[in-house]
Design a protein around this nucleic acid. Structure first.
Lengths: 250, 250
DNA sequence: CTGATTATGATTAAATTTGATCGAATTAAA
DNA sequence: TTTAATTCGATCAAATTTAATCATAATCAG
């Protein structure tokens, strides 16, 4: 019994039942559990199935990938506390950047009645602010459906044409060494907004502090003010590096 | 019972009832309350639900999903017939402009499976196409909440940077004398898109034919092809002026 | 036929999952 | 506000699953 034959049988059973167990496969196919486990590992690496403990599942049965609406519900209390504090900094006639993260999105609810101009690449932000006192300028470019945002070179150029008094940005992680992003698109967007702003506010709930992600895109000098619900030892390090820290209670 | 299966079941119950309790889940799934609690914590961290004391809530009740309202169910049958005909003209690998009118919006449903690039200033169009085979390029600029579209000088410049094989545009009125728009914003937008396209399709239901509006912004030479459900005498005049007319039955 | 590469199975240490327990935190009630 | 009842998070232990290592068997090229 070759690997190809076993793979075919496994997929067949998967199609019929939606899920399979290693022990079950071992007896049904007539090979050791070790071999079945190896097969499943390979097939999972090729995206043919989803590995679970003790077995596997059909890809389609697995919960969909994390999208924007999802992450917004994580640490909601902290995010709202952070954004309420940040919103207190915004004055009428300000022009501000808001980036496409789920934290910055929560800022919308607190600024609806302010007479300001918001420049953003986030579709949910546009949706949230479009029937408010706020004037919205939407950054153009390629639409990234997964992130519900606009990215690309056109977006970069668009941002470069504007200037704001304040930018409210999020990151995937922050340490004393620098800022981390989950994708290059987000990173270049964050950089572009920051470079066109007088004052850069970083909105970071405690889960992001001390965390790194796959791309370190800048050191801490990019940020002027960190608004966070975290109050551990790292906060002092940020202070030493020239960042003002606004602490809030979640 | 693996974590994945439990997660699926929890989401199912959440979908049905909107909220769930830990004790209820424990007996219904057949695992300890500790495990349920752990599952909920993990799922909340992934943003799949919103954690409450003693249970969990659907996230959709915490966060509003992104969607752009879309009015104008006027003359729907005619608009759909026009758009079905227009969509037949669109080939894979085309790059097309779609403007912000309610007629052009109806084109979306017929092009979701085409491998094309759509450049638009219409928020409903973006919303409609964002989880389809189509690549969407959103034009940047000031957001006009009333029209659910993007306008302004930045939008003009953005359009000028692109070129499309076809443009699908609407107008407020059309006579033998020319094209009429309801606002200067719409007019300049329509002009910009037309000038950057090889072939300009005008999508016009019968209510617009022979009608004028407050701004005559161009003569008929802007248009290559008129797609309409109207088949009165004016159609001949358009033909004389060099416009091909595609007639459809509503 | 021989040597080398690959696939398989057995063994064991590491990692995961689950449930229990208990002090701390949160909510509800008085 | 204070008190009582739940609920939560952390820690620990037991059971299971996994990954890594090694030895053996099968396959293949020259």
């Amino acid at each position: 019994m070759t690997f190809q034959k076993r793979a075919y049988k496994i997929l067949e059973l998967l199609e019929a039942f939606g899920e399979v167990e290693i022990r079950q496969l071992s007896t049904k196919i007539g090979v050791s559990e070790v071999t079945v486990r190896r097969d499943l590992t390979t097939m999972a690496a090729n995206g043919l199935l989803y590995r679970t403990h003790g077995g596997a599942m059909k890809i389609s049965e697995v919960i969909k990938p994390v999208s924007f609406a999802n992450k917004a519900a994580v640490n909601l209390k902290a995010k709202d506390a952070i954004c309420r504090r940040a919103a207190a900094e915004i004055m009428d006639s300000d022009v501000i950047f808001i980036d496409c993260g789920s934290t910055a999105f929560r800022l919308c609810q607190f600024i609806k009645n302010k007479k300001i101009k918001v420049i953003t690449n986030s579709l949910p932000v546009v949706n949230e602010l479009q029937h408010s006192a706020v004037t919205v300028n939407l950054i153009g470019g390629e639409v990234d459906a997964a992130r519900q945002a606009v990215h690309g070179t056109m977006a970069q150029e668009h941002i470069a044409r504007y200037h704001a008094s304040k930018a409210f940005l999020g990151v995937d992680g922050i340490t004393a060494e620098g800022l981390y992003a989950g994708s290059e698109h987000e990173a270049s967007n964050t950089l572009a907004m920051a470079s066109q702003s007088d004052c850069v506010y970083l909105l970071c709930d405690s889960s992001k502090i001390g965390k790194t992600s796959y791309l370190k895109f800048n050191d801490l000098s990019l940020v002027n003010i960190l608004v966070t619900d975290y109050n551990g030892p790292e906060v002092n390090e940020f202070g030493v590096k020239g960042i003002s820290v606004f602490s809030v209670n979640a």
